[in-house]
């Protein structure tokens, strides 16, 4: 595990999450991981995974929630505000611009092809990041099984997310407690 960098300033938080919000394309959690863990080294792989996990089970966008938690950790309320407004502000401005020209861009077939290509790459980016995180965290076998059950329940059975969390969390937390005890 590499050493962490010094804590970010509010401006750095804002700018990092601006990038994540703007270029997430459905895979903001993947991009946020690269920025926060690999590039800036503000959090360890495990810390990021735990923050993202909390952000995932809470209502709202997972990375939006993570931005609040991460910002709070470094700078309290103003930090949370800086990180989360980075995530939303520039996209909101762009969306406003798009609404003003309402639809004239979306009709261009080239834009359509470009966006389809990006969407396909974003899908791969999300899959690749999930595999990478799973690998780097080196989870015990029972946690791998629980994770894959969550994947199957969401991707194939299409169960609602709160139900999946309610069904699997008792087993996952129980398994984590058992590992803790075993380690003493």
């Amino acid at each position: 595990m590499t050493d962490l960098a010094p804590p970010p300033t509010r401006l750095q938080l804002f700018l990092a999450f601006t990038r994540v919000g703007l270029f997430g394309f459905g895979g903001a959690a993947a991009l946020a991981r690269q920025v926060v863990v690999e590039e800036k080294r503000w959090l360890s792989e495990r810390d990021y995974a735990e923050m993202l996990a909390a952000g995932q089970v809470l209502p709202g966008p997972n990375v939006g929630n993570t931005s609040v938690m991460l910002g709070r950790r470094f700078h309290g309320f103003t930090g949370a505000l800086a990180a989360s407004s980075g995530f939303y502000a520039v996209p909101l401005v762009l969306l406003t611009g798009l609404l003003l020209v309402y639809g004239s861009v979306a009709d261009d077939p080239r834009v359509d092809s470009f966006m389809h290509g990006i969407a396909a790459a974003a899908a791969g980016m999300v899959v690749g990041t999930a595999v990478k995180m799973g690998q780097k965290l080196r989870p015990p076998p029972e946690m791998v099984v629980i994770g894959l059950l969550a994947t199957a329940a969401a991707a194939w059975l299409r169960l609602p997310l709160p139900l999946i969390v309610l069904l699997l969390a008792p087993f996952a937390v129980g398994a984590a407690l058992r590992r803790q005890k075993a380690r003493g």
């Binding site: 459905g26 895979g27 959690a29 993947a30 495990r46 995974a49 735990e50 993202l52 996990a53 909390a54 995932q56 089970v57 997972n62 969407a119 974003a122 899908a123 791969g124 980016m125 999300v126 899959v127 690749g128 990041t129 999930a130 595999v131 995180m133 799973g134 965290l137 989870p139 946690m143 791998v144 629980i146 994770g147 894959l148 059950l149 969550a150 994947t151 199957a152 329940a153 969401a154 991707a155 997310l161 999946i164 969390v165 699997l168 969390a169 996952a172 937390v173 129980g174 398994a175 984590a176």
Partner: peptide
Amino acid sequence: GLVPIAIGLILASGLIM
């Protein structure tokens, strides 16, 4: 305990995309 579930769910969202 929530970490593997969240990663599993993110993997699922990638597969659906």
